[in-house]
């Protein structure tokens, strides 16, 4: 087999790993961070390592602008900051409006999607318990880095205002 092809074959996997790192870094650099109230406790799923699973919490979702999701229109959450460490205010709007007029825009489907936060294996059982407890007292928040309505990375989980340890 030609040497160039062998070189390409062995280099591709390493390039893919590098690409994944660069893409994640770029996304982080472009993102804005928002604090969200979280709820909805699920047990960890061992299939994908150790992580805590949660959902964004929005008790009321006022309508800023009518948006018909069943009509092919993409609906978003309009994110408005209230304070540096306070959860954002959420209203429902079209993605175009949310992107133009709000501090940030997030696809509405994230309200019904479970998000994951990886944690150190040894601390998993106690963190599990702490998260469940904080959710019960509505004192759990998540910091999300958002780079467009569909590009989200979980940056931090906070229980009673204190960030919990992520894998370093």
């Amino acid at each position: 087999m030609r040497r160039e092809l062998v070189a390409l074959a062995v280099a591709l996997p390493v390039l893919a790993i590098g690409f994944a790192i660069v893409r994640s870094e770029r996304q982080l650099a472009r993102s804005n961070e928002f604090v969200f109230a979280i709820g909805g406790y699920d047990p960890r799923d061992l299939l994908k390592g150790h992580y805590l699973q949660f959902r964004l919490r929005a008790r009321d979702l006022p309508t800023r602008e009518a948006c018909d999701g069943s009509n092919g229109q993409t609906c978003c959450l309009c994110l408005m900051r209230t304070g540096r460490n306070d959860p954002v205010e959420l209203t429902r709007a079209t993605c175009a409006t949310a992107t133009d007029q709000c501090d940030g825009a997030l696809a509405e489907r994230y309200l019904s999607t479970s998000l994951r936060y990886y944690i150190p294996e040894l601390e998993a059982p106690s963190l599990d318990q702490q998260l469940a407890d904080a959710m019960q007292h509505e004192a759990a928040t998540a910091v999300l880095a958002i780079d467009g309505p569909d590009r989200v990375q979980v940056r931090e989980l906070r229980l009673y205002g204190v960030a919990i340890a992520a894998p370093r």
Partner: peptide
């Protein structure tokens, strides 16, 4: 190793 590394990137950047 490639699969493990992609998982590692996912864990570190908390990719969903």
């Amino acid at each position: 190793f490639t699969l493990a590394s992609l998982s590692l990137v996912g864990q570190i950047y908390q990719l969903d």
